[in-house]
Nucleic acid binder design. Structure first.
Lengths: 338, 338
DNA sequence: ATAGGTTGTCGAAGCGCTTCGACAGCTTTT
DNA sequence: AAAAGCTGTCGAAGCGCTTCGACAACCTAT
């Protein structure tokens, strides 16, 4: 491995000069800079990460904690992770991948060892056991998701409450009065995952305000589970004409089942999805949906973090405004007469 | 931050002794060891990663390069990534997430800077431009996927050629003679991604051996693309009774379309998937499939890598034997008489 | 022409750890 | 009883970098 010292020698300057060329923290004459840069190129020099971290107390690494569960839509996680990684790179950071498995210990380990300069947490529970640790350290962090108490924390998330409201409003506008919500798997609610509960809040509140009836049923993904759930819903509330689906792996099964039962979408029933655009556009009926801006969330999280690391930025909650795209799965409610 | 020296002082020993307690590289008396461990716990000591990396020239980090494309089934990537991360942790390694974006430069950067001790590459092209770099360095690496020339490389992958053969055999055994293959998106083939081509090889070879007719059509995911593709296939070869699907986002669309056209699965046509079990079991018809052992691949990759880092292990190609699970989507070919 | 600024460069200290050689105090062998 | 070998511990060097203070060399202003 070629070292700073070797570059310095090759360029006929001192080591510190090379360092300053690299960091730009002191002014260097054009001639010297060029000579040094030339040497760096010729020798194929790459600064040693460990030495750098030791001397500067900065690792230039951002830790990203992803959940290892797979009961929530995985592509969203992946898209966030990729957005985090690419955005981090544009700011000169690399990303360390941590799974939720280690839990709070991972936070301790990373902060304690200086492995990373900052961290991003995904899959935040309303009352997450990692939060006290984050509050108790001076290491910057950003949550993707919203816990119950956001004081002293920086968070980025879709405004799921507004998302719920938006879905209800769209269906209300079309004349629907009885709505059923196909939710995430029961485990997601038991775990008190913020986004699921907030969506539900938004749905309930707005439907109440608009005088609509709302039925919420958690649902494991897949065809069989969806069949059972749908049967129960139609049994309990046959007048249901609008569906809101928040479980991506229930979308296609729902559409298939409705078709199979002779209920036309959108003539007889309307369906609104809360899912990535890709799912909405690839479904057998192009789905009216509120999209999950995974990329945007990942990007914002990194940018907040970098701002903090640069001494700018502060603790604040950034809620992304949901947008509903009308596609082919929603239409006017059928008149009750026929 | 508490340092080694502070622990040493607290325990009344020298710094090197503490280091040896931590690494176990020299024998330490029970009494001393306990005193040191006690101090470590009391002070909440965590070794500094940068210092460690500098002094030992080992970062205890494995780099994982994932593709940033999303035209291939993302959950598989995610599952591999998670398996890699958790397996790595059990061996004391952390995982650095790199996206394919940087390409060969990422390899140079990581090897050059000592950021990681080893790397795992996913989404390997048959003629991948990162390979010469890997061969030219002494940093261990493992590929998930198979390039054209594997000399001097360690690879882990599902045996896709055998997978193709297996699918054909299953359909042959059931009496099918005309088979259509719904492949990955055209871009995947244009890129010469190994697994897609090897599957095709296996399918073609075995169907030829068994005297079957095979039609291969790439297909973007989604309902609309699948509709077009299916129409073309049935137009060109109306006698088709067996389908092999290698594009996971075409599975449900295909099933829906067949249903819609009044072709019953498995009575009229049989469908075999090459996809993760989750997709196969959640489909509207439980799919006979060869599963993609994502976890196993991630785990094996890490274990090969750790073996190399420990001086054991060698360059070899590990092909995982495919397994076909019969579910509800395949049955005897309809007799040609009716 | 001299005091006061800049600008560009260098030397040296030190970041927190690992690791090598040394060695004191034992135990075993001859 | 001396030589040889273990064990457990320590001190010091050094990994490759950043950063601070020092200081020539050159510019202004007066």
């Amino acid at each position: 491995m070629v070292t700073l010292a070797e570059v310095a020698q090759h360029a006929g300057v001192s080591a510190s000069t090379v360092s300053y060329v690299l960091s730009g923290k002191r002014s260097i004459s054009g001639a010297t800079r060029q000579r040094v840069e030339q040497s760096i190129r010729e020798l194929g020099y790459h600064p040693n990460a460990g030495a750098r971290a030791l001397a500067s107390s900065k690792s230039n690494i951002i830790a990203l904690m992803i959940p290892l569960r797979t009961d929530m839509y995985v592509p969203v996680m992946m898209e966030i992770a990729i957005a985090v990684a690419t955005t981090a790179r544009t700011h000169g950071y690399d990303v360390l991948l941590l799974t939720g498995e280690e839990g709070p210990d991972a936070v301790r380990r990373v902060t304690g060892s200086g492995l990373a300069d900052a961290m991003i947490l995904m899959d935040v529970q309303l009352d997450d056991e990692r939060l006290p640790l984050l509050r108790g350290t001076d290491q910057p962090s950003v949550l993707i998701g919203l816990p119950a108490d956001t004081s002293g924390l920086t968070c980025v998330d879709l405004d799921f409450k507004a998302t719920g409201a938006l879905c209800v409003e769209h269906l209300a506008m079309l004349g629907h009065r009885d709505i059923a919500v196909i939710g995430e798997a029961p485990a997601v609610y038991e775990r008190h995952t913020g986004f699921a509960e907030r969506t539900l809040d938004g749905l309930r509140l707005r439907s109440q305000e608009l005088g609509m009836r709302l039925l919420h049923r958690p649902c494991e993904g897949g065809y069989d589970a969806m069949a059972v759930t749908l049967a129960r819903i139609l049994d309990e509330r046959p007048s249901t004409t609008g569906f809101v689906v928040q479980n991506e792996s229930a979308v296609e099964p729902l559409l298939a089942l409705l078709r199979q039962q002779g209920r036309a979408v959108p003539e007889d029933v309307s369906v609104v999805g809360i899912c990535p655009d890709q799912v909405a556009t690839q479904a057998s009926v192009r789905l009216t949906s509120v999209s999950i801006p995974a990329q945007e969330m990942g990007r914002h999280a990194v940018e907040q973090l970098v701002a903090k690391l640069d001494g700018r930025g502060s603790d604040e909650v950034l809620l992304i405004t949901p947008e509903l795209t009308v596609r082919a799965s929603t239409g006017p409610a059928p008149s009750p007469t026929h």
